[in-house]
Write a protein that binds this DNA or RNA. Structure first.
Lengths: 139, 139, 139, 139
DNA sequence: TTTT
DNA sequence: TTTT
């Protein structure tokens, strides 16, 4: 049966997005996102930060490369995906990532060089496909 | 700044919850949850299942032990937490878990031996604290 | 600034979806959805049901017409929209609806005549546009 | 069966919260929240704003009165509730509100007079009950 | 009635 | 490695 696998995060980018290009010119952006929680422990304020590995594909990756930078506050919606990989010594390890489906930059106008602030995976992909097609035109 | 770290899952338990008791009689329940997604690949239906490590603490763990069993369909809300541990060979590894904050059993009325179906972490903990206190009474 | 307007519901349909066709052959489905909450009041279990007006557009409406019926348990994700209208006596009234963006039928496999269970607005619309185009072919 | 009725909003307060006190000294805060969406229509950027009626009860209302003001950007989680009332001419009308369960102020440090930024309904209520008790002490 |  |  179909289920639901949804993640909602609001946090700050720990680094600029890193973009890689796979075969077929598919773009993938990834970056760490910090979500902090403040709570009282024995009458003292303690901050606990959780780091999330965000991954964006195709058109969404391209938009992220343009609009997201280290330090920006962003709302991200996506799904969890755990995958295995071998580290450099050949040991099998697992990593859990959030595959983003859309994001919205939060904050003030002055933070933006442009006012496109909400991006959905499908819309970004539509643009992506169009531009990819354009790039392939034989003239 | 405070952020948001929220996970929403609807899926089936892969196993019965496993309960452990930490010092101070703190209970912790954990179990795998499967969320499946069906999509078309080259005209064929493909099902992809993602497995999540669910963790519940204190009162919520006790309620889970009572109401959740392998195969049950459940809605879970919680937050992501990644922690490191050493495997049996001493290698440092990371695991990402969903620390549940509340859950609701989904399905038919006949699936239940009782109609308590939605449980919040705080309510469960209130019961838990009360019963723990009761257990400690010197008579 | 862009914001977030998101609703997540799991509940049962109170009626079969009602489909209407607007100009340009645009389909709109609407139905009431019940979400129930059980709580204790003075030691007695009380169930409180909230009714939501669900609206689905275009391709999503068509899929709803096919897969959703009265009584079905469904997960719905969408956004809130309040609109005004005049009742039959000319009095201005407001109604708040949930404009669905995707849905997933929950329950047992045996509940389905088909295993397509998760539907996104954009995917459904892609199918919709294609079929609309097909319908308009001059042969 | 129990269901899920969850709303997630990120938007700006249109006004300062308005606080009322019901019998038993129960506090209720309410305010409008705007969530804006920008989309392209015929090549032009169009902004559509949705207004939500937010209601907070008891301890959460008290904290809102202290930390939320017109213009602030806030993340709100809550549930939908539609209730009927009679307007001044005796006509029955319906209104749909979001009963908040917790909120987080988003934005920069300079926006805050204090760094308590995330508030849950139960925690706020615990404080509320305590202070109410304190106020009733006969000395 | 907010914000960008 | 972010932010407040």
């Amino acid at each position: 049966m179909s289920g639901i696998n949804k993640v909602i995060l609001v946090g700050h980018l720990g680094k600029d997005p890193e973009i890689r290009y796979l075969e077929g010119n598919v773009s993938v952006a990834s970056f760490p996102l910090a979500t902090s929680e403040t709570f009282n422990k024995d009458g003292r304020k303690v901050e606990q930060t959780e780091w999330h590995n965000i991954v964006m594909w195709r058109g969404l990756a391209d938009v992220a490369a343009k609009y997201l930078q280290k330090g920006k506050l962003v709302y991200i919606e996506g799904k969890l995906r755990t995958r295995s990989f071998e580290d450099k010594t050949g040991i099998k390890k697992y990593t859990t990532e959030i595959v983003a489906e859309n994001f919205t930059v939060l904050g003030r106008k002055s933070d933006f060089d442009d006012n496109k602030q909400t991006v959905k995976s499908e819309d970004a992909d539509a643009d992506y496909d169009r531009s990819t097609e354009a790039d392939n035109l034989p003239f």
